[in-house]
Structure formats: structure tokens, C-alpha cells
Design a protein around this nucleic acid. Structure first.
Lengths: 176, 176
DNA sequence: GTGTATTAAATGTATGTACATATATTTGCA
DNA sequence: TGCAAATATATGTACATACATTTAATACAC
């Protein structure tokens, strides 16, 4: 279920005005959803569906993240750091493990440092690298957020377990 | 096959330095690819795989787009406009049909106007709305780009046609 | 040992996303 | 008719992505 989280400072009246019509969630095949009745091939259809669905699922997730004050990429970095804990991680390692490799780990770490969820120290052995370490506060936040893990609260749970595994198999093949 | 497209102005020597190690394309199951050996459930695995794979496929596509000087969302808008041609489309209609509904159609149209791929005129009947129309130049560009349609050049074509249809079915269910 | 190549991280810039809000216009009802 | 609500679009801001480039430190070949 999609839950819209409201940012601070939004008056109830404003809410009333913008969302006076309940937010209906579409429940359609991809043809109807994007109003393109015909695809050139099963590949085009699957491609568009893949991009569209991933976007939807990500939106659902990041709406849930909002109440915790972190974005999805920030959360992903925190999880990697917890995986390393109590060892620190370098920025290179973060990039290597991030879902989106080309994103800018340095700047995401900046935001986490500002929120005191991680610390960053120059590594004495190799002064080019920095050690990024999750703080107690960061660990506590992740513990609170563990509920959300596993795509809970997103459409992925509409699949059966077998279907979820089959989806993973097909996606592995797309990336292979 | 992933083809890295180089932007204008990159010297061969620079290329030599940055990519002296050939860009190896990973070909792995999701566990190996993100170095997370165990997932909590098939759902978590499928969720991460979905987000990860969609990102990959999008990167492949946008690398191909680069040589034409448009981004993926710009391309999507151009395609919607061609679907309407010779009728214009309002910004509302663009938002309605875009893959990512919450993206900012106004500003993407701005970029397309600057490139002279579309025109924008206030609609005389309802002066709140604007008519966005694809230009001859825009149509010509799309014709050139038609080759790329359908996920060609992305990993989606590694599936069989049956698998592509099964993937679409599963994704429809995720969004339902 | 010195200088060049390589590596790690940070930064600059254009674009896009997510959300709130502002502005202009039209609709609709008291 | 006149004014409040609704609608269409644009804009402001924070964050992220994509890519090139810069800066600093280390490795390595000669």
C-alpha cells in the first residue's frame, strides 16, 4: 500500500486542497498504464515494464524512508556500512557495493556525516583513502528501519515466493 | 552488450588513461553482483534485483542516447509527442503518459524547446494550458533513433520471447 | 631515488526527481 | 454577477545521477 508521507510544515488545509480526491492506485497491465496499446515486440514491452515497475517500487520504498529522514541511496550506504561493522569502509568499497555504481558516494557520505549517522576519517596507512564508519546513531536508525527491509510495503510481495524467485532468475539473465 | 559512448572533447590519451583496464561487464547472479550472500526472503532478493537490473538497463539505454544529444526522459516525451502528431499535447497529457509520473515535464519541455525539437504555444481556448508540438527536426531525430527502440542494445534481448512475456506478466502483478 | 603513472576521493556542471508552493486562468455555485 | 474552488503550468529547493576534471597520495619503472 502506498502511503504518502507529508513533509513538515504542510497545513491540513493545504493537504485538503491537493489531495481532496483520494490517491487512486492504478492496477493495470502495462499497455493500459502507459496508454500504449501496441508494443513492437515482447522485448520492448518487457523493457518498458521493467523500467516503469522499478520506478514504482522505488517510489513506494522512498515514501516509507521519508519518515526516517534518509533517502534510498543514503539507506543503501548505511546498510553496507553495517555489513562491515565494526570495520570501516572506504569510499571505493561503497561504490563497489552500491546498487547504482555511478552514483556519487562521496556526496552521499557528506549527507550522512551531517546527520551524524557516519563518521569519516582519513586512513593513516593510505592517506588517499578515507575510513567511513557507521555511528551508534546510525546503527540505531537502521535497527528501527529493519522492518522495511525486503521490499515489505512494496508491490513485490504481491508475487508468490515461487514467482519472486522466477523474477530474480529472469532479471539475472537480463544482466548476464 | 554495454557500449560506453564518449562525450565530445575526450582526447584519446585521456581515454587511454581512464580506461586502460578494459571495462569488464559483470555477468553474475545478484548475490555475487552486490556481494550480499544471503537475502532475507525471495521478496527481498527480487526487490533488490528489480531495482538493480532496471538501473543497469536504463544506463545502457541512456549511453546509446547520448550520441543523439537527448536524455531518456527527453526521448520519452518526444515519443509521446510523435504519437499525438500532428495534434499538439498539453503538459498534463505528457505527465499522464510519462513513465515516471512525478518527473517535471515542464522543465524537460524547456530543454527540448531549447534544442528546437518541440514548440510550445499558449492554447487560445484555455489560456492555462500550453500546446506542445514536435517539430520537423524532432521527428527527424526520432526517425534516426527508431533503431534503438524496444530495448535493443540492452540486456533485455538476452531473454527468449517467452521469457520476456513472463517477465512482463510478473511485473504487471507487482504493480497491480 | 626520481619522475611518471596510477589510484582514491572530491568537486564542478548539467540534468533529473520529489515535493512544496506560486501564479494565472477557468469553473461553478451562492 | 462575483467570488471561492479547481485546474494547468511554472518555479524554488534539496537531493541524486552522470560524467568530466581536479587534487592529493602512493606505486612503480627506470
Amino acid at each position: 500500500m502506498y502511503v504518502h508521507i507529508f513533509a513538515n510544515g504542510v497545513s491540513p488545509m493545504f493537504f485538503q486542497k491537493r489531495y481532496s480526491q483520494p490517491l487512486r492506485l492504478p492496477n493495470m497491465k502495462i499497455e493500459e498504464e502507459i496508454k500504449q496499446p501496441v508494443f513492437k515486440s515482447p522485448y520492448q514491452k518487457a523493457y518498458i515494464n521493467l523500467v516503469y515497475t522499478a520506478g514504482r517500487v522505488q517510489q513506494e520504498q522512498s515514501a516509507q524512508f521519508k519518515q526516517y529522514g534518509v533517502t534510498l541511496p543514503q539507506y543503501n550506504i548505511l546498510r553496507i556500512l553495517r555489513g562491515q561493522y565494526p570495520k570501516p569502509a572506504t569510499v571505493s568499497l561503497l561504490i563497489e557495493r552500491m546498487l547504482d555504481k555511478t552514483s556519487n558516494a562521496s556526496r552521499i557520505v557528506d549527507k550522512l556525516v551531517a546527520k551524524e549517522l557516519v563518521t569519516r576519517h582519513q586512513c593513516p596507512n593510505d592517506r588517499r583513502t578515507v575510513d567511513v564508519l557507521i555511528t551508534e546513531k546510525g546503527l540505531a536508525l537502521l535497527k528501527e528501519m529493519d522492518e522495511l527491509e525486503g521490499g515489505k510495503g512494496t508491490g513485490i510481495t504481491r508475487l508468490s515466493e515461487e514467482e519472486a524467485l522466477e523474477l530474480s532468475r529472469l532479471l539475472d539473465k537480463v544482466r548476464s
